[in-house]
Design a binder for these strands. Structure first.
Lengths: 247, 247
DNA sequence: TTGAAACTCCCCAGCTCTGGGGAATAGCGA
DNA sequence: TCGCTATTCCCCAGAGCTGGGGAGTTTCAA
């Protein structure tokens, strides 16, 4: 019974006390759902990450070495696609989700060659933390069963949450920079490509004041230019894409 | 059969062409899952939001007026809790998820008084977009059935994704510019705050070449500065936050 | 009342970015 | 072979951004 499987996994995963335990649970459920491989990770350059990052998987060993050597952690097309949606997706739908570069194609071809034929990736995002996902992959001949999607979605999300708790990912709301209203106003327009001068006109303040607000905003985020300022604000939700893309 | 219900909803939701259609689907599934109310929304001050924000619900009308008057959109404790996790949670567990202020307690008490006794909220985050969630609530006497959690999780996530697509949160694939590998390399570093000169050093090319690649990249996206270039590339997945935030 | 924070305004030097040109090489497919 | 794209390199002028100063008001909470 599918729903019982899900429930059982959910309870076990959230009760797990070590990553090893979770790893074993993932092994079992992966096969139970008809997959051969799983990979649960943060989308960072794991060996070089400054913060502890998640990575649990049973992909072939060669693959991990290749992956790290090429630093795919942050630019893996599957991961990039998972940043665009809140639901799980089949790898076969990648070309419809984003424009693949030559490198992406090479990467995917290579993955297939070592046995990762098709898979499903479940995104897992928590504002202010590194993006992550939980993938399940099939090898030769097998294809993911679409009717199991609800189960896969639940398992992936639950597994990720369990892992997050186990490595103590939760970041304090406190250490997130807070912008003042005026700083956000200026950033809002800056993110739309307006110059300091234009922002000043729009807000009805002097050129120097607009400069001052953005200077202060950069300081709060500890960055040295507008581009990084906008990116950080987007990431922590101070700014949204719908704010930034209306030109 | 639970899994069939989920599957059917998933297909219908992702095939829906209007918010009305989705609204009807949510009505139906809400009752099918044993709830009375649903609310799918972006966590913003909806009536004052500069950009279109999602909000579909069948909560009592009084509630919406109260909610907007008090500007709970961004500070609703249920929403705040949903920013701390990637899985759904029961409202009854709120006190274990965050420290509730007096205002929070008042808000929850008032919600209960008008018939929102208990509920489950499924977070839905996409990096760079306003945070959101999909909640299902019960009225008098009924309590959420924990064994339906996997189903609720799936339905909530899928409904949110469907709504996101319907309000055009995501741009069509067709008009998405494609960057060359080298352009993306330059942008990758530019998004990390590197100057043209630094990018050139890193990639081992001349200063002028780096400038040229970024010039061309701006042209492809039809934007006039680095900030907008980075934002557009982040939005369409050519660049990921983990690329950009690794300083 | 004291202080902190927000908001406002000003100056300047120097670095960085942008848009306008031009041009050569290599590869790939029609 | 021709044309297209990607990649590399170069010059320049002007606009824009950044970091370093300083300084006034208001508001709100301790």
């Amino acid at each position: 019974m599918v729903i019982a499987t899900a429930q059982h996994f959910g309870q076990a995963a959230l009760a797990a006390t070590t990553l090893d335990e979770l790893n074993n649970l993932l092994h079992a459920i992966t096969h139970e759902m008809g997959f051969q491989y799983f990979a649960l990770s943060h989308h960072v350059d794991v060996p070089r990450a400054p913060q502890p990052a998640l990575r649990l998987h049973n992909y072939p060993r060669d693959w991990e070495a290749y992956y790290d050597a090429e630093r795919f952690g942050p630019s893996d097309p599957v991961h990039r696609a998972s940043h665009l949606t809140s639901v799980g997706f089949c790898w076969s739908m990648l070309p419809r989700l984003l424009a693949l570069t030559n490198r992406d194609e090479d990467f995917l071809a290579r993955s297939r060659r070592i046995g990762l034929i098709d898979g499903i990736t479940i995104p897992a995002h928590v504002p202010g933390e590194a993006a992550g996902s939980c993938s399940f992959a099939t090898s030769w001949g097998k294809t993911p069963r679409p009717e199991w999607m609800p189960l896969v979605q639940f398992v992936g999300t639950t597994a990720f949450e369990s892992a997050r708790r186990l490595v103590g990912m939760r970041r304090a709301q406190a250490d997130r920079p807070r912008l003042s209203d005026r700083q956000r106003d200026c950033l809002y327009w800056a993110a739309q490509g307006k110059s300091d001068w234009a922002i000043a006109k729009i807000l009805g303040i002097s050129h120097e004041t607009a400069i001052q607000h953005l200077k202060e905003a950069r300081g709060r985020y500890g960055v040295g230019n507008r581009t990084q300022l906008a990116i950080h604000a987007l990431y922590d939700g101070a700014l949204s894409f719908t704010d930034a893309l209306r030109r």
